[in-house]
Design a protein around this nucleic acid. Structure first.
Lengths: 227, 227
DNA sequence: GGCGTACGAACGATCGTTCGTACGCCGATT
DNA sequence: AATCGGCGTACGAACGATCGTTCGTACGCC
C-alpha cells in the first residue's frame, strides 16, 4: 500500500502544484505549511522534495503558469480589431482577463495575494518582466482608446488599470462572498466588462443576453451570511 | 536607557497597534512575527504582552477600529438625500468608503487581506455582525437606486457591491503600484466614484474639477516600473 | 509598598528542509 | 530468458530556526 506503481511520475508533480495552488489561494502562502501541501496530495513532507525544489519555487511556478495563460488570452483579445472604437478592444480584454482568472482562480489568487512572497531568484526577474509586458499591453490599449475618444480622457489609464485588476480580483476571490454576497453565476466576465465600461448608471446598451432578474426583490434573504 | 519614564502608558498600546497595522498591511498576518512587531516599536517580544493579550486580538482590534470609522462615514453618506436620484447617494457612499480606506489604509488592508485569520472568539461574532450591517446598508442603497431607475437594473446588487469593495482595495493597496502604475495623487475617491458610476466610456458628466492631464501623452515613460 | 511596565530566559510547537534508506520498475548485460 | 544495476520515488527521522507565548524578576513612579 505504501509504494504505488512508482511511475505515476508524470502527474505527481502536477498534483503537488495543484494542491499547493488550492491551499495558497485559500490560506495564503505563509498560512500554508509544506506539511499541509504534502497531506493534501497524500504524501509525506519529505516526499515533496522529489518533485519540487522549494516552497517558494512552488509559488513562482504557479504564478508563471498563470501569466502564461493570461498572455495567451490577451494576445488574442488585444489584437487590432480593425474598425470600430478601440474601447471595444478594451472591453474584450476585460472579458478575456476575467475569463482566465475564472479558469485559473487559484493561480490568480496566488499571483494577486502572494506575489510579494516570491523569493528573489533569477526566475523572479522573468516573472517581473512578463508582468510588465502585460501591463504595457493594457496601457497601450487604454491610451489608444482615450486618444480616439472611445474612452474618457479625464481619468488617467493607471487608475483605470487599477480598477480593472482589482475588480477582477473581486470577481474571483471567494472571500468577497461573505462581504458582498454570492458571486454571479451567469456570465461574470460579461457583467464585469459591462459594469466597468458603461458604469453603474443606466445606459443605452445592456449586458449581453444575461438579463439578471429575480434578485432585485428578495430584499431580506441575504444568503451566505453565516460564519 | 532601558527603562523610560515608565508612564508613556497611554499611547504605548497605541504604538503597538500602529506598528502591527503597518506590518500586517505590508507583509500579511502570517508573514509578520510578534518579534517583528516588538522590534518596530522598540520593545522586546515579551513586553508586548503587557499591552495586548494576543497576536490574533491585535488583528481583531485593528479590524474593529476600521469598521468603526467606516460605519461613521457611511452613516453620514447613506442618509436619505431628500430629492435627486438615489444613485447620487451611492456615489456619495463610494466617495465616503474610499475616503475612509485612504485615511486608514493599513487597517483597511488588515481587514481585506487578513480577515480570515482572526481567531474564533466572541469578538469575532461582533465583527461579523458589524460587517453584515455595513453590507446591509450598501445593499439597501443599491436596491433603492435600481428601483427608482437611477442605477442599471440588469446587474444584481451583489455584483456591484463586489466591484465597489474590490476597486476600493485597488485604490488603497500599494501592491497595485507595481502592476498598474502609480496611484492617483489627486482625488482618488472622486475618480473612483466617477469611474464606477459612469464607466470608462465618455459621458456627459466628468470627474468633478480634477481634470487629469499630462499623463495621456507620456506614452513610453511608465514610472514605478522597477522592482 | 504596590502597580504598571520592560526584560531575559525559556517553553513546546511548528516551520522548511536534508539525509540515509528502502523499494518497484526498466533498460542493458550476460 | 534470466539477471542486474540504477533511476525515480516515498519514507522516517531528525536538523536548526523560528514561531507565539509564559514566567520570574527588576525597576521607576504614585
Amino acid at each position: 500500500m505504501a509504494q504505488q506503481t512508482a511511475h505515476a511520475s508524470v502527474d505527481a508533480r502536477e498534483r503537488v502544484l495543484s494542491a499547493a495552488a488550492e491551499l495558497f489561494a485559500e490560506r495564503g502562502y505563509h498560512g500554508t505549511s509544506v506539511r499541509d501541501i504534502a497531506a493534501a496530495c497524500g504524501l509525506k513532507p519529505s516526499s515533496l522534495y522529489s518533485h519540487v525544489p522549494d516552497k517558494s519555487t512552488l509559488l513562482a511556478d504557479l504564478v508563471m503558469r498563470y501569466l502564461g495563460a493570461l498572455e495567451a488570452a490577451l494576445e488574442a483579445s488585444s489584437a487590432d480589431p480593425g474598425g470600430g472604437p478601440s474601447a471595444n478592444r478594451v472591453e474584450e480584454m476585460v472579458r478575456a482577463s476575467v475569463g482566465v482568472a475564472l479558469r485559473y482562480p487559484r493561480e490568480f489568487l496566488c499571483l494577486s495575494n502572494s506575489w510579494t512572497y516570491i523569493r528573489r531568484t533569477p526566475s523572479l526577474a522573468t516573472l517581473v518582466a512578463r508582468r510588465d509586458a502585460v501591463r504595457a499591453v493594457w496601457q497601450r490599449a487604454l491610451r489608444e482608446a482615450a486618444a480616439d475618444g472611445s474612452l474618457r480622457a479625464d481619468v488617467d489609464p493607471e487608475s483605470m488599470l487599477r480598477v480593472v485588476f482589482a475588480a477582477t480580483h473581486g470577481v474571483v476571490d471567494r472571500r468577497y462572498d461573505e462581504i458582498a454576497g454570492p458571486a454571479d453565476e451567469g456570465d461574470p466576465a460579461g457583467v464585469l466588462a459591462a459594469l466597468l465600461l458603461d458604469g453603474f448608471r443606466p445606459r443605452g446598451r445592456a449586458v449581453s443576453a444575461t438579463v439578471r432578474a429575480g434578485t432585485a426583490d428578495a430584499g431580506a434573504v441575504r444568503p451566505g451570511l453565516a460564519e
